[in-house]
Computed example of a mutant assay.
Amino acid sequence: MLQIRPTCEHCNKSLPFDSEEAMICTFECTFCKDCVELLHHICPNCGGGFEKRPIRPKTLLHKYPVSIKEIHKPVDLKTHYIKFKIK
């Protein structure tokens, strides 16, 4: 079951359960579309790619609540670009 994290790890933008802007990697690191573009579609935590996060139906929120834990770890873009050889 996906956690459905509430914010972008980089910019801390709100990404509610029904956000069309939420992107995740294979480990559920969560970023907004704008930050994924800044990161050149490479997860700074695992090096994997991103996909659009599925939307959990409202009817399932009571039985399967979304995460309320915010993870805010702004990425040092210079280091990210060097690490993943981005120009």
Rank of each mutant, 00 (worst) to 15 (best):
Y81K: 04
R56V: 10
R56W: 01
G48C: 14
F31E: 02
V66C: 06
T7F: 00
L15A: 10
N12V: 12
E21H: 09
C46S: 07
R53A: 11
G49D: 07
E37M: 13
K73F: 15
L15G: 00
I42E: 00
C35A: 04
L61R: 05
Q3D: 02
C32P: 07
F50Q: 10
H62V: 11
F31H: 01
K69R: 08
P74M: 07
I24N: 01
F17R: 09
S19W: 00
R5L: 13
C25K: 04
Y64I: 10
K73P: 05
I71Q: 14
C29M: 02
I68D: 12
T59V: 15
K13R: 11
F84H: 15
T30I: 15
R53K: 10
C46K: 01
L77P: 04
L60E: 08
M1T: 13
G47P: 12
K13F: 05
K52Y: 09
M23H: 07
C46W: 13
I42T: 02
K13I: 14
E28H: 06
P6I: 15
V75S: 12
F17I: 13
D18Q: 06
V75Q: 03
K69M: 15
L15F: 09
H40V: 02
C32W: 00
C43H: 01
F50L: 06
L2K: 04
M23C: 07
E20Y: 08
N45R: 11
V75D: 08
G48S: 03
K13Q: 13
C43G: 11
K33D: 13
I82E: 07
Q3H: 01
K78S: 03
C29W: 00
T26H: 14
P16K: 06
P57L: 15
E20G: 04
P54E: 06
P16R: 10
L60W: 15
E21P: 02
I82M: 10
V36F: 05
V36I: 11
D34P: 00
L60Q: 14
K58R: 08
I71C: 13
L77V: 02
E51D: 14
S19F: 01
K58L: 10
F31L: 14
K87V: 11
C25G: 08
T7W: 00
S14V: 12
K78C: 04
L60D: 06
L39K: 05
D18S: 01
L61A: 09
Q3R: 11
T7D: 09
L38P: 00
H72N: 03
I4H: 04
F84G: 03
L39Q: 11
T79Q: 14
D34Q: 05
P6S: 07
T7A: 12
P44S: 03
L60T: 10
F84V: 11
S14C: 05
F27H: 10
C11E: 01
H41C: 09
S67N: 14
K69S: 15
T30V: 03
K87N: 07
G47C: 14
K73E: 15
E37Y: 09
E20A: 12
K78H: 11
E21L: 06
H10E: 08
N12F: 15
C11Y: 00
P44W: 00
D18N: 13
